[in-house]
């Protein structure tokens, strides 16, 4: 367990780093498509955090094996009996399936919402002729100025 203890800050730290980096890409890129990609990285890294919590050391994928089947016995031979007795279900240690379910649907929904974001970008390009964030900000500022001049 000592190795796992040493790895803990490292793996969570990497997960948090990926989240922060994704957020940074989403906030600072000038190209709108890269911003969306950053958002995708941010979302996937949130999934990484969930999956990190679901892993059980020595566990296997949450597909139930028949108790005492050859596969179950081969898995059991790698772990000590007391560990299996405390943490296993019917003689096999499984990783936690619940985060898997949440992230699985989130990935497909993420792709669908990515498509919505991209179609907004396509519309922006067709309307303003650019997907550069700075140029769009300049266009907006100019439109605001023009509007104020019209009022005055």
């Amino acid at each position: 367990m000592t190795l796992a203890l040493a790895l803990t800050p490292y793996v969570y730290g990497l997960g948090f780093f990926m989240m922060a980096a994704g957020l940074l890409i989403a906030l600072t890129s000038r190209h709108l498509i890269k911003r969306l990609i950053g958002l995708g990285v941010f979302q996937t890294s949130a999934g990484v955090f969930y999956i990190l919590l679901s892993k059980v050391s020595g566990g296997t994928a949450a597909i139930r094996l028949e108790a005492d089947s050859p596969a179950a016995r081969s898995l059991a031979s790698r772990l000590d009996a007391a560990y299996i007795a405390t943490h296993g279900v019917d003689g096999v240690v499984y990783s936690n399936p619940l985060p898997h379910v949440l992230i699985l649907t989130a990935i497909v929904v993420g792709a669908a919402t990515l498509a919505v974001g991209l179609s907004i970008i396509v519309r922006i390009r067709e309307t303003y002729g650019t997907v550069d964030f700075e140029e769009l900000a300049a266009l907006e500022a100019k439109a605001l100025r023009d509007g104020r001049e019209d009022e005055a």
């Binding site: 990190l52 405390t86 990783s95």
Partner: peptide
């Protein structure tokens, strides 16, 4: 802890 079988997420509903 990474891989902890007794962690709260893995203990109850999962």
């Amino acid at each position: 802890v990474f891989g902890d079988p007794g962690s709260p997420p893995s203990s109850y509903v999962g």
